[in-house]
Design a protein around this nucleic acid. Structure first.
Lengths: 269, 269
DNA sequence: AAGTGGTCTAGACCACTAT
DNA sequence: TAGTGGTCTAGACCACTTT
């Protein structure tokens, strides 16, 4: 079998360069892996053209559809790009391709055992101008104001404040402020009424109240993650924001080639 | 023809609920749109099961492969999830699904005409402990230190500092600090030598130098976008960081259903 | 055993691009 | 016109889950 030594530090681990018909791994991911390795090895360099799909069909003895799936997979991973009628090309690494994923806050989502959500306050509050605008209710109408503290290993990490629509005909919403586990909190309102949400992330400097709650010095730099959730009638259900120090919110990501092999298939459009 | 009124505010715009065989739009995206609309209309609610693929094949008179593509597309968009042997289910909106995309910094990437990169300084500097660690070179070895200011409509927006490996045998790297347009800057080193990059984003408070350059008050909250790029031998090529105020770096995103259909470019994952 | 998603085939036809 | 990517078919077989 033809192999290729791993490009990473000359480790002797060989990489199969032929389709293993009896493997557990699907043929299309095998082919994607082979092409990715060839790109990594410099056989196909950024900007250059890959073999045509018909060529790949012949070379690897697979059907056109299987070649397409491999190509689509690599395209979805941002490694290559296709141009109708021209060919398939290896992409150059671009900073602008980067994406930061909230789920990468492993500290929060993995260590669920040590993450505790504590309800500080929950009460009715007449909507001021800001709340009335965000929740699309009339000023003065009662909303539910909640304050929560998320602690990781007994250390304050996230301070969450928010307003919920108070609607006696929708008791599900009311149940939200009883949520004390992290999963429920990060699932929006913890019920299937949510159709969409808007999020924004920006830098801030902790004010006195926030610094006190999070037990850090005044004017510590931090991040604010603001969120608004909408129901299936596109009406706001809740508006709130998390405040934290950069000790607890630092987003990481990578561009270019990843060592982990994706499982996704279709390209998002 | 069977139609469904748009779920957005009772607008009379109808949405076709059958496959248009003569349409420009591919069948699989048409089917994905139909299913998405049915979910939005509440016909299939979060947590509930979608019709089986065999059912969809019969209902819409398309081949199994085409149904699969539609399903895969919706799964890649995070709207549904599949469970082998059990079925396909409508997902609930989850905060943790959110992703922030750097390319959404439209301010920077769209207004290229008004965005100017100005080189403030470029000189050799012996690597201190930190630089030696980040660039994996011996302490004292000369690196190129560069400082740049990005202005948007004549207003200071991003302050960029970085270190480049100085290697006379690789003149392409040297050329980087001559980059004065934004595209080149955001393309890593602007050459196809880059294999991957690591990025991190965190909150900060601007120090005296940064506040002076960006012409804002001292201790203004801001963000730091740190980046390290690696070549095809996995050796660091450059290390640097952008500093800006939240006036210029505020990340937005959405979870759940989007209002735009089928115009998105490819995204990673 | 029945139902479900997952993979794969071996073609066909179309649309776009370059020559 | 030739080469390329893009879509689509009508089945087949497999693996997983539930009954």
């Amino acid at each position: 079998m033809s192999t290729l030594t791993s490009p990473k530090g000359g480790s002797p681990a060989p990489f199969p360069m032929e389709i293993q018909r009896d493997s557990d791994q699907p043929v299309y991911t095998q082919l994607a892996d082979i092409l990715r390795q060839q790109i990594l090895a410099g056989i196909f360099q950024p900007g250059q053209k890959l073999p045509s799909e018909a060529m790949l069909v012949d070379t690897y003895n697979v059907s056109p559809m299987t070649v397409r799936r491999a190509i689509n997979l690599l395209a979805a991973q941002g490694i290559i790009s296709t141009a109708h009628g021209r060919g398939t090309f290896v992409k150059e690494v671009q900073l602008s391709n980067a994406a930061f994923y909230l789920q990468d806050l492993k500290e929060l989502f993995n260590s669920e055992g040590t993450t505790v959500v504590k309800l500080i306050e929950a009460r009715f509050l007449p909507a001021d101008e800001r709340v009335s605008r965000k929740l699309q209710i009339k000023p003065g109408v009662r909303a539910i104001y909640i304050r929560r503290l998320l602690t990781v290993e007994d250390q304050p990490a996230f301070y969450h404040r928010g307003y919920l629509i108070y609607d006696p005909t929708r008791p599900v919403v009311e149940s939200e402020f009883q949520v004390t586990d992290l999963k429920g909190l990060f699932r929006g309102s913890g019920n299937p009424l949510i159709k969409s949400g808007e999020l924004s992330l920006e830098a801030t400097v902790l004010n006195e109240e926030e610094a006190g709650i999070l037990q850090v010095p005044l004017h510590t730099p931090g991040m604010v993650l603001e969120h608004t959730f909408y129901d299936f009638r596109d009406k706001p259900v809740s508006w709130g924001w998390f405040v934290c120090t950069n000790q607890h919110l630092r987003l990481y990501t990578r561009v270019g080639f990843e060592q982990t092999y994706g499982t996704r298939d279709e390209r998002i459009r």
